[in-house]
Design a protein around this nucleic acid. Structure first.
Length: 726
DNA sequence: CTAGGGTTAG
């Protein structure tokens, strides 16, 4: 009997020395051990186990269990042997289950244990906290206290993490009070937890008080403060604390550096960010993959997408967050095509995507502006696990609106359950962009009925909608509704109102309104006034607005062009010429106009007078025929404002080869009768092309949708949705 | 069995 006991305890050791890897140990030794265990039951001769050390035997087995099944087998044996109440083994079992990610199983083991001590409680609380199941962690913590089990120095950090993760300021403050009563002032683990908790709740001042009272501050204490400032929009302060930490001679580890890199990212200080990068290389920390992710995100967000991409490529197995950082980096910096390409790459390689990936990819599609791509994205999302995510759906609504199809946006809107203010606002903004003011207002009614409180973006969408549909009265009333909801109007709201008043010719009232603004009027406000002056040919007020604009942004070409357009509309050619001279003196070059048209999901670009297209000859033939038909229909080019316009497009003498006309001609010859043409251009629509496009839509019996720098124009049957005001 | 980090719509 004694020899068999000995043999059993010896198996793991002998195997261990022969096969040092843990997996091997499990495969051989435990299979044998399990076979042995299978052959006895609780009524077996208990003498066999007289001197047997269960703790070390099962501990070994648990440590080497690769799966939940193995743990379950071990657990079953506890009951057979009557040792199911050994806290040490249960703690080990729960921790092992947690490390395997089997939190549900860990909880099951916990629930079958009748009288947990602090170690067992710690194990289960750690489990919930580790997987960000904060409510679970807190629930277990309160149950622990009901049973009068006192927390120790290991319990509290997990609980604090949970309080900060929710975040629940109240709960954390209670825990902080307990910590004080229990006397953990000197426990650096607990105190660091308190610092991080306050920082996560945005109570950075409280975090600082606790931090400064710490007698011993380690790198974790410092990092908690640095990331606290970084996460609360105070990156400069974060960097200052980092400086202090360095002065104290504390060596940053890789997590500290991640926080510092994030702070540099937020201030877009690539110079210092790069020096951190070299520090990382010098200290040999560049093997730390999460540090590389932070660096990738930094370069991507600061616009250095090429550098970011090379770091991305260095990673053998990119993880989800790295993919996200790269995709959102591309999307943010206008590399929408690259973002989409990378997203497609990711799904074709069967990587898991999360809600952030989906949002970034949808955002990129919105920028590309291709309706076909938008449809593909929608199709992908609606079949994925993200289909009910309201963040993703609000991005989809925005995407469809920006890709020219507000009705598809509405379909996404209607299928979105539990709509929040962002979803409602996205739809309202979409209607606004397309000049469908009535529908925007109707939706606002429904939103009120649904009990959703509007915010600043909702009102911006509503005001834009009223503006683009000429609903002056409604807009004016809505603007005054804002204060009922305690929403402070910002520059863009004021600009909308100026636009609104200006549209109906109330220019003096618009000026008066500007003078009464509680905040300093900015570029958007004066720009709106100048536009209105151009429409109504009010030269003196327009000149004043232009003067304000030049003082705010003396190098923005657009303002000079607008002023020149104002003069042209009033036929003041000498002043048009003066603006041109002024621009030359400032060394301003004119923005190049271009248009994109989507044909079978592919985008084709045209510049003014472009002859580079392979089908150029056919395009110009179509253009000439269109021109003839326009003339026959009695179309007279509005030469006075166009010929003297300073836009590059507008400078060209023949008006019929503006980029959008080339795009239209190409669209007509490459699509079937009746197909809708979708065009995107980088500048505002010129008056001539706008009138011409209206007529063309009637002559060729096609719907033509043009997205200009400001809004959408839907041309159909000779009229445009903008009502000729843009 | 402890703590700190990175990606985020309108």
């Amino acid at each position: 009997m004694a020899s068999s006991t000995k043999l059993l305890t010896k198996i793991p050791h002998s195997f261990h020395s022969l096969y040092p890897t843990k997996i091997t140990l499990f495969d051989f030794a435990t299979v044998q051990s399990f076979n042995f265990l299978k052959n006895f039951s609780s009524n077996a001769d208990s003498n066999i186990f007289h001197n047997f050390n269960f703790d070390s035997f099962f501990a070994n087995l648990i440590d080497n269990s690769p799966q939940k099944n193995n743990l379950a087998q071990v657990h079953a044996k506890f009951f057979l042997l009557g040792i199911q109440q050994r806290g040490f083994l249960i703690t080990k079992l729960i921790n092992a289950a947690v490390n395997l990610g089997e939190i549900g199983y860990a909880r099951k083991v916990f629930d079958e244990f009748s009288d947990p001590d602090v170690f067992v409680w710690n194990a289960i609380i750690r489990g919930y906290s580790k997987y960000n199941l904060f409510a679970g962690a807190i629930e277990m913590y309160s149950r622990m206290q009901v049973l009068w089990v006192s927390p120790d120095g290991y319990t509290l950090p997990h609980v604090l993490k949970a309080c900060g993760g929710l975040p629940s300021l109240k709960m954390g403050q209670q825990v902080h009070g307990q910590i004080f009563r229990l006397g953990f002032e000197k426990d650096v683990f607990v105190q660091n937890g308190v610092v991080a908790f306050y920082a996560k709740c945005g109570k950075i001042a409280s975090a600082k008080v606790v931090f400064e009272r710490l007698e011993i501050r380690n790198v974790v204490s410092w990092t908690s403060m640095i990331s606290g400032y970084a996460q609360n929009g105070k990156p400069i302060e974060a960097l200052r604390i980092f400086g202090e930490m360095r002065e104290m001679g504390v060596i940053p580890d890789w997590i500290a550096l991640v926080s510092v890199i994030r702070a540099h990212t937020d201030v877009e200080d690539l110079e210092h960010g790069k020096s951190i990068h070299s520090f990382v290389i010098k200290t040999g920390l560049e093997l730390e993959s999460d540090l590389l992710i932070a660096l990738t995100a930094m370069y991507a967000k600061c616009g250095q997408v090429m550098v970011a991409r090379s770091l991305f490529n260095q990673m053998k197995v990119p993880n989800l967050i790295l993919w996200n950082a790269m995709i959102s980096g591309y999307a943010k910096n206008g590399y929408a095509d690259e973002a989409v390409k990378l997203f497609r790459d990711m799904i074709s390689r069967n990587f898991r995507t999360d809600s952030i990936t989906a949002r970034s990819a949808v955002l990129a599609c919105a920028q590309v502006g291709s309706f076909e791509l938008a449809r593909w994205m929608d199709n992908y999302i609606s079949k994925s696990e993200h289909r009910d995510d309201i963040f993703v759906n609000s991005a989809l609504i925005d995407m469809y609106a920006k890709c020219g199809n507000v009705d598809m946006a509405r379909i996404v809107f209607d299928r979105t359950l539990d709509k929040d203010v962002v979803v409602w606002s996205a739809m309202i903004v979409g209607y606004g962009l397309h000049g469908r003011g009535r529908e925007a207002l109707d939706l606002y009614q429904l939103m009120n009925q649904a009990g959703v409180r509007p915010n600043d973006v909702t009102f911006l969408g509503l005001l834009t909608a009223c503006n683009h549909s000429g609903l002056v009265e409604d807009g004016w009333q809505l603007f005054h509704c804002m204060k009922d909801y305690g929403i402070e109007p910002c520059h863009q709201h004021y600009a909308c109102v100026v636009d609104l008043l200006g549209r109906s010719g109330y220019l003096d009232q618009a000026y008066d309104f500007i003078l009464k603004m509680p905040i300093e009027p900015g570029v958007s406000v004066w720009g709106a006034l100048l536009s209105a002056c151009k429409i109504h040919r009010h030269v003196t007020l327009g000149e004043y607005a232009a003067e304000r604009l030049f003082s705010l942004e003396s190098y923005n070409t657009g303002h000079y062009v607008q002023l020149s357009n104002l003069y042209a509309s009033a036929r003041m050619w000498d002043r048009v010429a003066k603006v041109r001279v002024l621009m030359r003196e400032k060394g301003l070059s004119k923005d190049l106009g271009y248009s994109l048209i989507e044909i079978n999901g592919k985008l084709e670009a045209f510049r003014v007078g472009d002859k580079s297209h392979p089908r150029s000859k056919e395009i110009y033939e179509e253009l000439e025929s269109l021109e003839r038909r326009l003339k026959q229909a009695g179309f007279v080019p509005d030469t006075y404002s166009s010929l003297h316009d300073l836009n590059d497009e507008e400078m060209v003498e023949t008006l019929c080869n503006h980029s959008e006309r080339l795009a239209i001609a190409f669209g007509l010859i490459s699509t079937a009768q009746g197909t809708t043409l979708r065009i995107t251009k980088n500048l505002r629509a010129c008056i001539n092309c706008h009138s011409a496009t209206k007529l063309i839509s009637k002559l060729v019996n096609r719907e033509i949708i043009v997205r200009d720098a400001n809004r959408f124009h839907h041309f159909k049957d000779g009229v445009c949705s903008c009502g000729d005001y843009w």
